[in-house]
Computed example of a mutant assay.
Amino acid sequence: MRESVASSNIASIGYDDASETLEIEFHNGTIYQFYNVSQGVYEQLISAPSKGQFFSAYIRPAFPYSRVG
């Protein structure tokens, strides 16, 4: 289940610790799942002052992903 976040690009973020899957929904409606994301990285994303900047710097280039929506 995703939770809404305050971000100009990201609408909501969800995380499944059992599968280490991060799910991000953008304001344009696209949804991506990122794999092998540790709980620590997820927590850093949630607490980042700019979730979009953190995503662009540390998640998008570092983890395999697929578009799911």
Rank of each mutant, 00 (worst) to 15 (best):
9 N>P: 00
5 V>L: 08
47 S>D: 04
15 Y>N: 00
8 S>L: 10
63 F>M: 03
57 A>T: 14
32 Y>L: 12
9 N>S: 13
33 Q>G: 04
47 S>G: 04
43 E>D: 07
13 I>Q: 05
36 N>Y: 07
57 A>V: 13
51 K>R: 15
26 F>K: 13
27 H>G: 05
9 N>Q: 12
66 S>Q: 10
52 G>Y: 12
22 L>Q: 02
58 Y>D: 13
68 V>R: 02
40 G>T: 12
18 A>K: 14
17 D>K: 13
26 F>N: 08
53 Q>L: 15
9 N>G: 09
50 S>T: 05
68 V>T: 03
57 A>I: 14
11 A>T: 09
34 F>C: 02
45 L>R: 03
53 Q>W: 12
21 T>C: 10
52 G>I: 14
57 A>W: 07
40 G>I: 09
2 R>M: 15
23 E>W: 04
23 E>H: 07
13 I>M: 09
40 G>D: 08
32 Y>F: 14
35 Y>I: 13
52 G>H: 11
14 G>L: 04
50 S>C: 09
3 E>L: 12
39 Q>D: 06
46 I>T: 06
13 I>R: 06
21 T>H: 04
27 H>A: 03
42 Y>N: 05
36 N>I: 03
13 I>L: 07
36 N>D: 11
58 Y>P: 10
55 F>A: 15
43 E>H: 08
31 I>K: 09
50 S>P: 01
17 D>C: 09
6 A>K: 08
31 I>V: 15
48 A>H: 10
19 S>G: 04
54 F>M: 05
62 A>S: 13
